[in-house]
Computed example of a mutant assay.
Amino acid sequence: MPHRVDEGLAGTMKRVAASLKTAEIPFALGGSFAVYAHGGHSSDHDVDFLIREQDKERALQELAKVGFQTEEPPEDWLVKVYEDNRMVDLIYRPVETPVTDETLADTERISVEAIYMPVLSATQLMIHKLLSYSQHHCDFAQGLPVARSLREQIDWARVRRETAKSPYAEAFLVLLDRLDVVSLEPDEGKA
């Protein structure tokens, strides 16, 4: 059975994307809606967009102009906008790494609910998911459906390289190998 998204949240996502496009603020759709855009399994409780930190104030101003409520929470890696009770995160430093022009170039232009927008690549989505795991949050049950549903679109060698310092990512990749979701080839660069 295909996954359906919350129509109200999808409408909010489209209005934010259209406003950012109109204001010529570079962005990429991330999180569960990006997984959905790639045809994967996702849950949708909010919308995530990646923006550069230098664009956060202008993004908040532009979105406030079109009726969104804005919030600058104490966390120093995102700002938020709301439409009714629907939340949109504007993330400028996911997994402790600043969003750069290169981050925003690692996208595909995809029609999401009938509006074309840059969507973070499946590979980058998986990297962000794995690097978000820590001793305080390590719910592999959220990552498994994403890995299974997007596995053919993901550059697993790149995921492995870019998450090599995380023991949580390594454990997740071993789990994927043991479950026959993806095969982990031995790293030729290791002795």
Results as ranks from 00 to 15, higher is better:
110 I>C: 14
24 E>N: 14
149 S>L: 11
173 L>S: 01
184 L>G: 11
30 G>K: 01
40 G>H: 04
56 K>F: 03
13 M>P: 00
90 L>K: 13
178 R>I: 04
183 S>T: 15
176 L>V: 08
63 L>R: 00
91 I>E: 12
181 V>E: 03
146 V>S: 02
110 I>K: 15
120 L>N: 07
157 A>Q: 15
6 D>T: 09
10 A>R: 08
28 A>R: 01
172 F>I: 04
32 S>N: 05
79 V>M: 06
13 M>Q: 09
46 D>H: 06
141 A>R: 04
191 A>V: 14
41 H>Y: 12
105 A>Q: 13
177 D>W: 08
81 V>S: 10
72 E>A: 09
116 Y>G: 09
94 P>W: 12
181 V>H: 07
167 P>T: 03
140 F>W: 06
80 K>C: 15
58 R>P: 01
122 A>M: 12
80 K>W: 11
126 M>K: 04
59 A>W: 12
17 A>R: 06
103 T>Y: 07
76 D>A: 15
156 W>R: 05
158 R>D: 03
179 L>N: 09
6 D>M: 01
23 A>W: 01
55 D>T: 02
26 P>W: 02
84 D>I: 15
80 K>P: 09
131 L>W: 07
182 V>F: 00
115 I>T: 15
81 V>H: 10
10 A>T: 03
44 D>K: 02
118 P>K: 07
160 R>C: 02
67 G>T: 00
2 P>C: 10
185 E>N: 07
56 K>A: 14
72 E>R: 13
66 V>L: 13
126 M>R: 02
54 Q>Y: 00
19 S>Q: 08
33 F>R: 03
111 S>Y: 14
37 A>E: 02
26 P>K: 07
121 S>L: 05
56 K>E: 09
99 V>K: 05
164 A>W: 09
176 L>E: 06
62 E>G: 06
20 L>W: 13
163 T>V: 01
34 A>Q: 00
31 G>A: 04
180 D>Y: 12
134 S>W: 03
131 L>F: 06
107 T>D: 08
79 V>S: 13
69 Q>W: 12
39 G>E: 00
112 V>D: 12
38 H>Y: 05
90 L>H: 15
183 S>I: 14
19 S>M: 08
15 R>K: 11
117 M>I: 12
20 L>I: 07
104 L>K: 13
155 D>L: 00
164 A>V: 06
153 Q>C: 02
94 P>T: 13
71 E>K: 12
